Structures are given as structure tokens and as C-alpha cells.
Computed example of a mutant assay.
Amino acid sequence: MDLRHLRYFLAVAEAKHFGRAAERLNIVPPALSMQIKNLEDELGGPLFIRTSRSVELTEAGRLLQVEAQRILDQADYARQTVQRSLRGETGRVRIGFAGNAVLSGKLTDDLRAFRARFPQAELIASEVSPLAQADAILAGQLDIGYTPDHGKLHIPALRCEKIGIWNRVVALAADHLLASQARLTVAMLAGEPLIFYDTHGADKALYTSLTALLGRAPDIAHCSSSSLSVLALAAAGQGIALVPEPLMNISVPGVVYRPLDAPALAANLMLISRRKENNGAVDAFLTMASQSERPR
């Protein structure tokens, strides 16, 4: 007995006629009669009382009618549930993000768009340092990361896509001598103590590019793990920070921002995930985030 037998049985029970049921099922009446006969043989008794003009359910047939409908309804529910999961309409997506993903509007736009399209899917978003995102994704603790590019991303197990790029600006204390300048150059930064996120990690690309432009290694005064702590150190006069332009949206007492003429130091935003992914909701989010407009 399989689902096909039950569908055939219910069609005959509803039509009370083999010919009409066969027409509805798009099969010939003898084939339908054979399938019902096989079902009756398997169950051990008749399911219909056959006459020359119609068929009626036996007591056993009436019992099977209830159970067969219940089984087919459950099978249809299971099919739809799995299909919704495969399409990404249900399930859970765990996202880690760095500060510029929020301040640029890219992350919030993606979250809103996904929620509008897949309201039954669960979204969990939390701030995670750039260096920790890749490890968390590979360990199964996160599904997707929004992070600046850094050395830990370029491994075979990770899928990486650039989804944003911005100029850098200089964040410095309002009473710093350079604050009086309307626009800064890299040459003006020579000898200035700098505040980095991480000299040889999250800001490794910035460190390398800045070294090339200065002709020597920059003076790293402090390393910090978050955007707010970087800006707090700048406000305290502990150094100056080269931050992505979206951070200008953060108003910190004592901090001013100045444009920097250095396109080579541009900051980017990467969308990262596992290269082999079997979660339909995660795949749906990645597709949507990749296709949405990329901020510049």
C-alpha cells in the first residue's frame, strides 16, 4: 500500500463509480479496478460493495476513508514544509556583522528585505569581530558574516564576495593640530600615532597599503576590537584612526572626521559564508544579499 493506492481509493469513494474516478485520475477503468483489487487483497477484505450502477463503501472502507485522507493530508503537509525549507521560507539564519555593515545601511537593508520576503524564517544578528567571524562560520556557530577583508577569509572552505567599498576618513580629537585642515593626505599622517583594529589581522591590508604609501611602517599606538573603542581612543587624543566613511554617522563627543585623499586605502565589506551550504534559508539570504545594490 502506498500513497498512490490511497489516492485511487479516495477517488472511487468520492465518485462512487469506477469510470468517473478513472476519468478524474486520467487512467483507464481496468487499471483502476486492478489497483483497488490489489489494495483489497493486501488489506484482507473488500472495501467497496459493487453494483452494476455504483459502488458503496463497506464498513472497513469507511474506516480507511478517514485514515487515508489523514495520511494524504500529512504527506502533503510534509511536502510543503520541506519545499518551504528548501526555498528558504523557513529555517534560521545566524549573521555576524562588523560595525560598517550597519552604519553603511547594507546589513539593515538586507535584513528588512529578507524579512519582507520570508517572514517565517528566523533571523539572528549579532556584532562579531571581523577576525572571529570566519572561525565562527567554519565551526557552525554562524552562517553568514559581514566583515572587512582580511587574511583569514581567503581559504577554500569559505565563500567570499565583495558587497561594498568606501573611502577612508580620518577620525581624530577635535583639538588635534590636523583637525584644522579641511582635507588630509597620507603625507600629513607620517609620524602620527595610529589606532588600528588589529595590526596584523583585521587591518592587515590597511597596514600593508599604508606602509607602501609612507615608505616605512606606520606608528601603531593602539589596537582595539570595536569601532566605538577606536573612536573613544581617538577622542581621548591617544592617536588618530583611519576608518571607513560610514563611521562618520557615529557622533562621538570630542571626535571630528576629515576626508583623506588616499583611494588606495579604501575600505571594503565582504559577505562570507560556508562554501558548502545545505540550509535553504541561508542560501536564500545569500542570493538576496548578493543581488541587492552594493553601497559605494
Results as ranks from 00 to 15, higher is better:
Leu178Asp: 06
Arg216Asp: 11
Ser126Tyr: 00
Val169Cys: 04
Leu86Cys: 07
Asp135Gly: 10
Gln35Ala: 15
Gln65Asn: 09
Pro156Tyr: 07
Leu131Gly: 05
Asp283Phe: 09
Ser224Gln: 07
Ala236Gly: 02
Tyr77Ser: 11
Cys223Leu: 04
Gln120Arg: 13
Ala22Val: 11
Ala179Thr: 00
Ala113Cys: 10
Ala289Cys: 10
Leu271Ser: 04
Asn268Cys: 08
Leu177Ile: 05
Met1Pro: 04
Tyr8Asp: 15
Met288Leu: 15
Leu10Ser: 09
Ile137Phe: 00
Thr199Arg: 15
Leu43Trp: 05
Val28Ile: 11
Ser224Lys: 01
Leu72Thr: 04
Thr58Phe: 12
Ser52Ile: 12
Leu142Pro: 06
Leu142Ala: 07
Ser126Gly: 07
Asp261Ser: 11
Pro130Gly: 12
Arg4Pro: 00
Glu40Arg: 13
Gln35Trp: 09
Gly88Met: 08
Met188Pro: 02
Ile144Lys: 00
Leu260Ile: 05
Leu286His: 02
Ser209Ala: 15
Glu67Gln: 13
Arg274Gln: 13
Gly191Thr: 12
Met1Gln: 03
Leu214Asp: 11
Val102Cys: 11
Lys152Leu: 14
Lys204Cys: 14
Glu122Ser: 13
Asn100Leu: 13
Glu89Tyr: 05
Ala284Arg: 06
Ser224Phe: 02
Ile195Val: 15
Ala136His: 06
Leu206Gly: 02
Leu153Ala: 12
Ser225Tyr: 03
